[in-house]
């Protein structure tokens, strides 16, 4: 069944079609949720609220292609995660001076398992992690992040640079260990 047909049946409140849509995207969406929420049960909670919203707002969504549908669903999930983070975490980040770029060997990234990189991102401090996820991985602009998190653009930029620095430092340590082995 094509995605377009599946979405049509979902709009008609077909429970089987909704289940199929869920099975098609839940795993990938859960991965994204875990990057933001860290805790598995919190990520599952966000997945629940995301699919409830997807099924409600599906009628208003105009189907273009599979990629845009995925981005639409991912956007709902990210918003759900941000709402929860805003509710539970303190995002009043103090603007820091933009960190200077440091030299980094990008080959290290290829040597480290993707699962490890995912874990390293999840272990970043909440402010770094959220801004890095939004800007570096989801493609949000600093202006959008500033609006979503109610921080200044400067803060968003500095948080991103700090996140990159910390992540590069951790990757270098791991990459160095991999070289020795």
């Amino acid at each position: 069944m094509t995605l377009s047909a599946l979405l049509d049946r979902c709009r008609a409140q077909d429970a089987k079609a909704q289940r199929l849509l869920y099975e098609r995207y839940a795993g990938r969406l859960f991965r994204v949720a875990q990057r933001y929420m860290k805790d598995r049960m919190e990520a599952e909670d966000r997945l629940v609220s995301t699919f409830q919203k997807i099924f409600v707002h599906l009628k208003k969504m105009e189907y273009k292609d599979e990629a845009s549908t995925w981005l639409w669903m991912k956007r709902i999930l990210v918003n759900e995660c941000l709402m929860e983070l805003r509710r539970s975490a303190n995002f009043t980040m103090v603007p820091e001076q933009e960190a200077a770029e440091q030299s980094f060997d990008y080959n290290i990234i290829d040597e480290i398992a993707a699962e490890t990189i995912h874990t390293l991102i999840a272990e970043l401090p909440i402010g770094y992690r959220t801004v890095f996820n939004l800007v570096a991985l989801e493609g949000y602009s600093h202006a959008e992040v500033a609006e979503q998190l109610q921080i200044s653009e400067g803060t968003s930029k500095s948080q991103l640079n700090k996140a990159r620095q910390l992540l590069q430092k951790k990757l270098q340590t791991l990459g160095y260990a991999a070289h020795i082995r």
């Binding site: 599952e44 629940v48 990008y106 990189i117 995912h118 570096a136 991985l137």
Partner: peptide, 30 residues
């Protein structure tokens, strides 16, 4: 996009789906 970000994004895209309590989550959605 920053080179570092691009490298990280490419690696994460290759990640397989992670198992979770799919049935429990679906029951709560329903």
């Amino acid at each position: 996009p920053h080179t570092f970000d691009e490298h990280i994004r490419q690696r994460l895209e290759a990640l397989p789906e992670e198992p979770f309590h799919s049935e429990d989550v679906w029951n709560r959605i329903e």
